[in-house]
Computed example of a mutant assay.
Amino acid sequence: MAVALFIPCYLDQFYPNVAIATLELLESLGLDVVFPTDQTCCGQPMANTGCNNDCAPVARRFVEIFSPYETIVCPSGSCTSMVRNHYDDYFEKGDEKFQHVKNRTFDLCEFLYDELKIKELKSDGKPVRFPHKVSLHQSCHGLRELRLSSCSENMTKRENKVRGLLDLVEGIEWCTLSRVDECCGFGGTFAVNEPDVSASMGRDRIADHVASGSEVMVSADMSCLMHLQGLIRREKTPIQVMHVAEILAGRPLPS
C-alpha cells in the first residue's frame, strides 16, 4: 500500500523528529511512503484568522499536489481536520479532485486504527516498549471534528483510537486526568489574540497532568504540545511532552 505523507509546516520547521518518526513508523508497517516535496501549509492559520481569500489558493494548491495519491496521512489532527472539514468553501460542488482528497486524508492515528487495524508494534524485530508513566492530552480537533474518542459534551460513546494504539506499547503505566478532554488553550491564532487566556488554560492543563503523576504528556497533535511545552520550559515544570508517533515508532523518552 502506498501513502502520501503530509507534514504540517510547523512540524517541518520546529519538530522534524516527529515527521521522521512518522515516516519510520509507516515504513515499519510495510507501507510505501511518498513525500510530495512541493507541499506547503494547509492554510489553517489564514482560515482561523478569517482571511479566507488568502487561504483559498493555498487549499487549491494542496488539493492539486495530493490528489494523485490514493491515501494521504498526516500526524496532526488539526491540519487533517482543516482539509476534511473546512475546505468545502474553497471548491465547487462536484470537484472530484477535492472530494478524493477530502475523503482520503487521515490523521495518523485514525489511519493506523481504522484503515490498517494494526494489532502489534515492533521496532528492530522486538515489541515496542515505553516503560514510563504516561498521560494523554486529547486535542479539540481530534475529539470534536475527527472523533478520535468520546468527548464529555456528547453522549455518543466512541473508541479512544489514540489510547488503543498506545495500549499496543509494552510498559506504559497510564495516569488518569481529572478532566480528560479539556482544551489546552492554544487554538492557533487564539494564542496570539488572547495570550493571557491561552496561557492560563495551558497552565491548568499542565497542572492536571502533573497532579496525575505523569512523567510524559502524549498527544496526537504537536500544536497543542508546542503550546504546553513552552509553558513547561519557562516555568520548569517536571513533565515532558512527546508526540504519539515517537512512542509508536519506539523512540525513548528524551534525556
Results as ranks from 00 to 15, higher is better:
184 C>S: 08
127 P>H: 06
239 I>Y: 09
141 H>K: 02
206 I>L: 08
221 D>Y: 06
227 H>Y: 08
124 D>Y: 12
101 V>T: 11
214 S>K: 01
206 I>C: 08
231 L>E: 03
171 G>A: 07
120 E>K: 13
156 T>F: 07
172 I>N: 03
150 S>A: 09
158 R>Q: 13
166 L>S: 07
238 P>H: 06
227 H>L: 06
119 K>W: 05
160 N>A: 12
200 S>R: 11
183 C>R: 03
105 T>H: 08
121 L>P: 11
207 A>Q: 13
122 K>F: 14
226 M>H: 07
176 T>K: 05
190 F>K: 00
141 H>V: 12
128 V>Q: 08
102 K>R: 15
117 K>M: 12
110 E>L: 10
96 E>T: 15
132 H>L: 00
226 M>T: 09
179 R>P: 00
205 R>Y: 09
100 H>C: 10
216 V>M: 05
106 F>R: 00
124 D>P: 01
188 G>D: 04
131 P>A: 09
168 L>G: 06
120 E>C: 04
173 E>W: 02
107 D>L: 04
165 L>Q: 04
126 K>R: 13
175 C>V: 07
178 S>Q: 12
121 L>K: 06
213 G>C: 08
224 C>F: 05
120 E>R: 11
125 G>L: 04
127 P>L: 03
189 T>L: 00
100 H>W: 13
121 L>V: 12
204 D>W: 01
94 G>R: 00
223 S>V: 05
144 R>C: 08
144 R>D: 12
132 H>M: 02
188 G>T: 13
170 E>P: 11
123 S>G: 02
223 S>E: 09
206 I>T: 09
232 I>C: 02
123 S>R: 12
208 D>I: 08
210 V>N: 03
140 C>R: 02
116 L>V: 13
238 P>K: 01
234 R>L: 11
129 R>C: 12
126 K>Q: 15
140 C>G: 05
237 T>M: 14
169 V>F: 09
108 L>P: 09
179 R>I: 10
167 D>T: 13
226 M>G: 05
152 S>P: 03
191 A>L: 01
189 T>D: 02
153 E>W: 11
135 S>T: 15
176 T>N: 07
201 M>P: 04
98 F>A: 01
223 S>W: 02
104 R>F: 14
181 D>H: 02
225 L>R: 00
135 S>A: 14
94 G>K: 00
168 L>S: 08
191 A>D: 04
148 L>P: 03
201 M>E: 01
127 P>E: 09
199 A>Y: 07
185 G>S: 00
152 S>N: 12
119 K>D: 15
117 K>L: 04
107 D>N: 10
213 G>M: 04
206 I>H: 04
183 C>A: 04
163 R>A: 15
198 S>M: 04
187 G>Q: 01
